[in-house]
Amino acid sequence: MVTQAYAQEAVTPAEEHVTVDGTTGAVDATHADPTADTHATTEAHDGGHSDVFPPFDPATFPSQLLWLAISFAALYLLMSKLALPRVGSILEERKARIDADIAAADASRQKTDAAIAAYEAALAAAKAKAQGIAAETGDAIKTELATKRKAVEADLASKVTSAEARIAATKAAAMSHVDEIAAETAQTVVTQLVGDVSADSVRAAVAKASKE
């Protein structure tokens, strides 16, 4: 490379001179321009190649700095004005959507909880009511039964007492008839045995006997 460059360098001035000398001005101008260019670039390369390690070659610094500035400024502008806001808005939209969905889900859950609580309260109230009704009915039935039983018992008791009274009366009546029967029996017996006897004397004898 180095030798090639040197060779070219050595050749080109000679060529230039030849063309300047040998041809017309117009042809000379068109011919001279490209060779002058290659001449300059090969020389610049020559310096870079031969003595300096390319990354430390100051001759390349202006070009690198200029193009770095241009490209990095372009990158910064493209990123800050166009690309990053786009990505950022996508991420924000998604976050907003997710947050809204979570909030909606939370609201639904709270509604469900409220519904469950209301249902449970209603159920508890109904249960309490049912229990109240059951207790009330039970009590009513009990009191009714108790009154009926009392009435029946009272009825029975009065019947028993009246019956007892009648028995006592009958018994008393019966007991009062015992003397008469005894007197009649005794009169009959005495009549059979002795003949006629006055009823009064028999009755007195019976009374005397029953007293003994």
Binding site: A59, P62, Q64, W67, S71, F72
Partner: peptide, 12 residues
């Protein structure tokens, strides 16, 4: 030398 070089090309 502000030439557009192979380095410039890869920056772009």
């Amino acid at each position: 030398n502000f030439s557009f070089t192979n380095s410039s090309l890869f920056m772009v």
